[in-house]
Write a protein that binds this DNA or RNA. Structure first.
Lengths: 148, 148
DNA sequence: TATATTGCTTTCAAAATGCAAGTAATATTC
DNA sequence: GAATATTACTTGCATTTTGAAAGCAATATA
């Protein structure tokens, strides 16, 4: 159990003390939008996080209460990570970031229809994603089959 | 002019490549909500950013097009920093972060009425803040006088 | 003319990151 | 059942970034 240092009581600072780095929100993204749930899946993301950093951030996220982990009952060597309610509540933050980046990054990889839905139908989109993360049938930005 | 390394075309990654660290969003916060505009004012914020880091981040922010700077006409030794349109467009991101932090941080310093307005009247709040940042009369979370 | 202010730059130790290799506990294949 | 593979890490070490303090040059003020 490692504790997170607070620098001030500012809400922006509170958030940055938890996920203010280049990697943590990518793990959240993988859990939230990409349907990834295991160590190996996080390692395989495009940005290629180093394994020691990944282990460190998973611990941080768990200590901060944004994710939880459980061993797979069918396969005891596999550990399944998932978002807690606190983690799921970051959906609006991530959606706003996607909207902003899609606007300013000319070469963004954000799927157009996803960005449009953020702009035009954010409430429903949020409910879909949130429901998916809480229940069994997950929501994915792209279908699992078409996206390799 | 320093260039920002992209790790992937993912919109979350794009954002983190610009402001994925412990300090950059605090500078944005100071510009956006606190009415701060000079090097010395940023240095004086509660979190106590180191001067070399501040200089580095201001350069990054300027290269990324989130802020601009101009020398004060009345006092040539003073440089005034301000948000560009791209920087102002981060208002929704910051507001969602404030909302999230205020919910989960028991000791949050986020002003209650500000958080309530995010929850109940986000559109108007956004317009007020945005208008303030674009024009002359700035919006502040707290009035300048009461907050030291 | 002397002192302050303002916005940095420099130096250097300490901490974080990145890369590669190694390990322990399962799972699978031959 | 033994050998190989998978899974989730840990370890060691070089490189990079950060943090703290001091220094500096161009105004500005007393």
């Amino acid at each position: 159990m490692k504790k997170i240092k607070r620098r001030s009581d500012c809400p922006i600072s509170y958030a940055l003390d938890i996920f203010g780095d280049k990697w943590t929100l990518l793990i959240i993204r993988d859990l939230m939008f990409e349907g990834k749930r295991t160590y190996g899946e996080f390692l395989n993301s495009d940005e290629k996080i180093a394994t020691n950093i990944l282990a460190d951030r998973l611990e941080t996220l768990q200590c901060a209460g944004l994710i939880k982990s459980e061993t797979d009952k069918q396969k005891k060597s596999r550990i399944i990570y998932s978002l807690t309610h606190k983690g799921i509540d970051l959906v609006p933050v991530l959606l706003e970031i996607v909207k902003w980046s899609a606007k300013y990054d000319l070469k963004t990889g954000a799927p157009k229809q996803f960005v449009e839905k953020i702009k035009n139908d954010k409430e429903n989109l949020m409910n879909e994603i949130t429901a998916g993360l809480k229940g069994e049938n997950k929501f994915y930005v792209r279908s699992q089959k078409t996206n390799k």
